[in-house]
Protein backbone atom coordinates (compact mmCIF):
# COMPACT_ATOMS: atom_id res chain seq x y z
CA UNK A 1 0.00 0.00 0.00
CA UNK A 2 2.83 2.39 0.95
CA UNK A 3 4.67 1.54 -2.31
CA UNK A 4 1.59 2.42 -4.36
CA UNK A 5 1.22 5.74 -2.52
CA UNK A 6 4.92 6.54 -2.93
CA UNK A 7 4.77 5.78 -6.66
CA UNK A 8 1.65 7.92 -6.99
CA UNK A 9 3.29 10.75 -5.07
CA UNK A 10 6.38 10.52 -7.31
CA UNK A 11 4.18 10.74 -10.40
CA UNK A 12 2.47 13.85 -9.02
CA UNK A 13 5.89 15.41 -8.26
CA UNK A 14 7.10 14.72 -11.83
CA UNK A 15 4.01 16.40 -13.25
CA UNK A 16 4.46 19.37 -10.89
CA UNK A 17 8.17 19.73 -11.78
CA UNK A 18 7.45 19.63 -15.51
CA UNK A 19 4.98 22.51 -15.10
CA UNK A 20 7.66 24.54 -13.26
CA UNK A 21 10.16 23.90 -16.07
CA UNK A 22 7.60 24.99 -18.68
CA UNK A 23 6.82 28.21 -16.79
CA UNK A 24 10.44 29.40 -16.92
CA UNK A 25 10.91 28.44 -20.58
CA UNK A 26 7.63 30.00 -21.69
CA UNK A 27 8.32 33.25 -19.86
CA UNK A 28 11.64 33.59 -21.72
CA UNK A 29 10.06 32.75 -25.09
CA UNK A 30 7.30 35.32 -24.56
CA UNK A 31 9.87 38.08 -23.88
CA UNK A 32 12.01 37.20 -26.93
CA UNK A 33 9.00 37.19 -29.32
CA UNK A 34 7.65 40.67 -28.52
CA UNK A 35 10.19 43.38 -29.29
CA UNK A 36 8.07 46.41 -28.58
CA UNK A 37 5.57 45.12 -26.05
CA UNK A 38 6.94 42.83 -23.39
CA UNK A 39 3.63 41.98 -21.74
CA UNK A 40 0.60 42.28 -24.00
CA UNK A 41 -2.47 41.83 -21.82
CA UNK A 42 -4.91 42.91 -24.53
CA UNK A 43 -6.00 39.33 -25.19
CA UNK A 44 -6.80 38.72 -21.52
CA UNK A 45 -10.27 39.37 -20.24
CA UNK A 46 -12.20 39.31 -16.98
CA UNK A 47 -10.57 37.51 -14.09
CA UNK A 48 -7.48 36.57 -16.14
CA UNK A 49 -6.72 40.23 -16.80
CA UNK A 50 -7.50 41.12 -13.18
CA UNK A 51 -5.25 38.30 -11.95
CA UNK A 52 -2.39 39.30 -14.24
CA UNK A 53 -2.54 42.93 -13.05
CA UNK A 54 -2.58 41.77 -9.42
CA UNK A 55 0.43 39.55 -10.17
CA UNK A 56 2.25 42.55 -11.63
CA UNK A 57 1.65 44.42 -8.36
CA UNK A 58 2.67 41.45 -6.22
CA UNK A 59 5.85 40.71 -8.18
CA UNK A 60 7.00 44.10 -9.52
CA UNK A 61 10.65 43.07 -9.94
CA UNK A 62 9.67 40.80 -12.84
CA UNK A 63 7.80 43.56 -14.68
CA UNK A 64 9.55 46.86 -13.85
CA UNK A 65 11.26 48.30 -16.90
CA UNK A 66 9.08 46.27 -19.26
CA UNK A 67 6.52 47.64 -21.68
CA UNK A 68 2.97 46.58 -20.79
CA UNK A 69 -0.19 47.00 -22.81
CA UNK A 70 -3.69 46.47 -21.48
CA UNK A 71 -7.31 47.49 -21.92
CA UNK A 72 -9.49 48.81 -19.13
CA UNK A 73 -11.69 51.69 -18.03
CA UNK A 74 -10.40 55.16 -17.31
CA UNK A 75 -10.45 56.28 -13.72
CA UNK A 76 -9.07 59.11 -11.60
CA UNK A 77 -8.19 58.95 -7.91
CA UNK A 78 -7.88 62.12 -5.86
CA UNK A 79 -4.82 62.11 -3.67
CA UNK A 80 -3.48 64.48 -1.05
CA UNK A 81 -2.83 68.14 -1.96
CA UNK A 82 -5.26 67.95 -4.90
CA UNK A 83 -2.95 65.55 -6.71
CA UNK A 84 -4.65 63.35 -9.31
CA UNK A 85 -3.74 59.78 -10.10
CA UNK A 86 -4.85 58.50 -13.48
CA UNK A 87 -5.61 54.80 -13.59
CA UNK A 88 -6.83 52.11 -15.92
CA UNK A 89 -9.32 49.91 -14.06
CA UNK A 90 -9.72 46.20 -14.66
CA UNK A 91 -12.19 43.85 -13.03
CA UNK A 92 -13.42 40.27 -13.07
CA UNK A 93 -16.73 39.15 -14.52
CA UNK A 94 -18.65 39.79 -11.28
CA UNK A 95 -17.09 43.27 -10.91
CA UNK A 96 -16.57 42.29 -7.29
CA UNK A 97 -12.83 42.21 -7.73
CA UNK A 98 -11.43 45.31 -9.41
CA UNK A 99 -8.01 46.88 -9.41
CA UNK A 100 -6.31 49.71 -11.22
CA UNK A 101 -2.90 50.38 -12.68
CA UNK A 102 -1.74 53.99 -12.57
CA UNK A 103 -0.32 55.51 -15.73
CA UNK A 104 1.29 58.76 -16.84
CA UNK A 105 0.62 59.88 -20.38
CA UNK A 106 3.49 60.52 -22.82
CA UNK A 107 4.90 63.94 -22.00
CA UNK A 108 4.25 63.51 -18.30
CA UNK A 109 1.19 65.77 -18.03
CA UNK A 110 -0.80 65.74 -14.79
CA UNK A 111 -3.73 67.78 -16.14
CA UNK A 112 -7.13 66.13 -16.21
CA UNK A 113 -7.95 67.61 -19.64
CA UNK A 114 -4.99 65.74 -21.18
CA UNK A 115 -6.43 62.39 -20.12
CA UNK A 116 -9.50 60.52 -21.37
CA UNK A 117 -12.88 61.00 -19.72
CA UNK A 118 -13.57 58.87 -16.66
CA UNK A 119 -15.36 55.64 -17.51
CA UNK A 120 -14.13 55.49 -21.10
CA UNK A 121 -12.71 52.23 -22.39
CA UNK A 122 -9.00 52.79 -23.03
CA UNK A 123 -5.98 50.87 -24.25
CA UNK A 124 -2.73 51.92 -22.60
CA UNK A 125 0.82 51.01 -23.61
CA UNK A 126 3.58 52.12 -21.26
CA UNK A 127 6.73 51.12 -19.40
CA UNK A 128 6.26 49.95 -15.84
CA UNK A 129 8.16 51.95 -13.29
CA UNK A 130 8.22 52.03 -9.51
CA UNK A 131 8.35 55.23 -7.51
CA UNK A 132 8.28 56.28 -3.88
CA UNK A 133 5.86 58.61 -2.16
CA UNK A 134 6.66 59.01 1.49
CA UNK A 135 7.49 55.58 2.79
CA UNK A 136 5.38 53.66 0.27
CA UNK A 137 6.53 52.31 -3.10
CA UNK A 138 4.05 52.42 -5.97
CA UNK A 139 3.91 51.27 -9.57
CA UNK A 140 2.82 53.18 -12.64
CA UNK A 141 3.18 53.10 -16.39
CA UNK A 142 5.22 55.93 -17.86
CA UNK A 143 5.73 57.11 -21.44
CA UNK A 144 2.21 55.83 -22.02
CA UNK A 145 0.35 55.84 -25.31
CA UNK A 146 -3.40 55.97 -24.78
CA UNK A 147 -6.05 54.92 -27.28
CA UNK A 148 -9.66 55.76 -26.45
CA UNK A 149 -12.31 53.43 -27.81
CA UNK A 150 -15.35 55.03 -29.35
CA UNK A 151 -18.66 54.36 -27.61
CA UNK A 152 -20.73 51.77 -29.45
CA UNK A 153 -23.78 53.23 -31.18
CA UNK A 154 -27.05 52.00 -29.66
Amino acid sequence: MKKIYLMFLSLIMVIVMSFNACAAANATRATKKEEKIDYDLVQLKGQMLYSQVVNIMEDPDTYVGKRVRLIGNMGIIDGADNKKYFIVNVGDVTSCCTTGLEFVIKGGSDKVEDYPEVGKKVRVNGVLESYKEGTQTYLHLVDTDVYVYKDKKK
Binding site: Q47, M48, S51, V54, E58, D92, C96, C97, T99
Partner: peptide
Protein backbone atom coordinates in the same frame (compact mmCIF):
# COMPACT_ATOMS: atom_id res chain seq x y z
CA UNK B 1 -15.55 43.79 -1.09
CA UNK B 2 -12.99 42.10 -3.36
CA UNK B 3 -11.08 40.82 -0.33
CA UNK B 4 -14.26 39.47 1.28
CA UNK B 5 -15.55 37.98 -1.97
CA UNK B 6 -12.31 36.28 -2.84
CA UNK B 7 -11.76 34.96 0.73
CA UNK B 8 -15.30 33.59 1.07
CA UNK B 9 -15.77 32.21 -2.43
CA UNK B 10 -12.22 31.86 -3.75
CA UNK B 11 -13.08 33.68 -6.96
CA UNK B 12 -9.54 34.68 -7.96
CA UNK B 13 -7.36 33.83 -4.96
CA UNK B 14 -5.79 30.76 -6.58
CA UNK B 15 -4.78 32.93 -9.55
CA UNK B 16 -3.20 35.67 -7.43
Amino acid sequence: SADVCTTLFGSTSILT
